[in-house]
Design a protein around this nucleic acid. Sequence first.
DNA 1: TCTGGGGTCCTAGGACCC
DNA 2: TCTGGGGTCCTAGGACCC
Length: 392
Amino acid sequence: MDPLPPRPRRIAHLDMDAYYASVELLRYPELKGRPVVIGGRRKSAPQEGEAFPRLKSYAGRGVVTTATYEARAFGVRSGMGLMKAAALAPDAILLGGDFETYGRISRQFKAAVAEIVPLIEDRGIDEIYLDLTDVEGETRAIAQRLKDAVRQATGLTCSIGITPNKLLSKLASELGKPDGLTILGLEDIPSRIWPLPCSALNGIGPKATAKLEGLGIRTIGELAKAAPAFLLEHFGKSYGAWLQEAAHGRDDRPLTITREPKSISRETTFERDLHPKSDREALSRILLDLCGRLAKDLARKELLARTIGIKLRFEDFSTITRDHSLEVPISDALPIRDAARTCLKRVTFDRKLRLLGIRASSLVKACEYTLGATEPSRAAEPVAALFQDLDP
DNA sequence: TCTGGGGTCCTAGGACCC
DNA sequence: TCTGGGGTCCTAGGACCC
């Protein structure tokens, strides 16, 4: 007897609404209805009775992480420089991010969802994919239960899109924001998806958008009508074929339920650009600190790294990386620092720096690597040593 | 008014090995 | 004296996402 044909997939994308900003409104309900921007680092939480800082009083580097819908009405967007945002909405409230709290509430909403749907793909702090295919019940009713559970657990609203695949669900969740619920079938693609700009597709970023526009393609519908050979010619075999599939709403990627980390990194942008020579002590101290934090991250996750890399961003925003792979995987700050120094020697320092970063990759589980002897511990070296004796 | 920090995946060339 | 083909690892950069 033939097996039953597989049920059509029912995939949900659940996205918290203006997540960081909404968490702050839970904490400061008096800010509800006002333009609020989250950005920069939290120095200290505003105390009772104290006035909230305004965007216009901000000076320095940093970008908008999230903005309330009231702030978005002024044109403020995620990723925008804070100085630019201040020009658009000078009287908006500016709060630094409190990522510990955002992480805690994130775990709460995911736990509440997991009570209803076991198959979850984690897509970061404020969004998840869910497989509803084998969940009993009508689609809209399940979605409403999910929204109720999230609100019950956190006091926050979310938007849900439900379609036959991840690509369309991601798009659909965006259509009803905030507090939305959008259910689409393949038959809705021409009317609901094709009028949207290509950049609405997850995987088409600024570069591809500009290139498509240069070719006269602005909407997903126009992309769907483009000749396959034309897309292959301009975007290559792999991406060209994907563009074609995506425009027709075709996507058979499964959910990724568990994931092993591929890399761990730490980086920091300085308050002002630093000179590789005259500021070398500061640079050494910063890189040392990053090595220490990376070592702690590796230890906490019980991982070892076979490759250590550095990242440098210069004053003109050009960015370079240098990698160094080791015979024996490491996790301690000292060998990480040695590897970083090896990388630094391959860099020409002819401009000021605005960012330093350190990265661990080719990760192995500490428990699975017990063979080789670990490196004997050594005494720490002077702090300034890292950026010593390098090119000007 | 210049553009955070943490990630993933892809491409491409060269080394090296069989 | 013109030269294979495949596989894997390493490095560097870039696009994209949250």
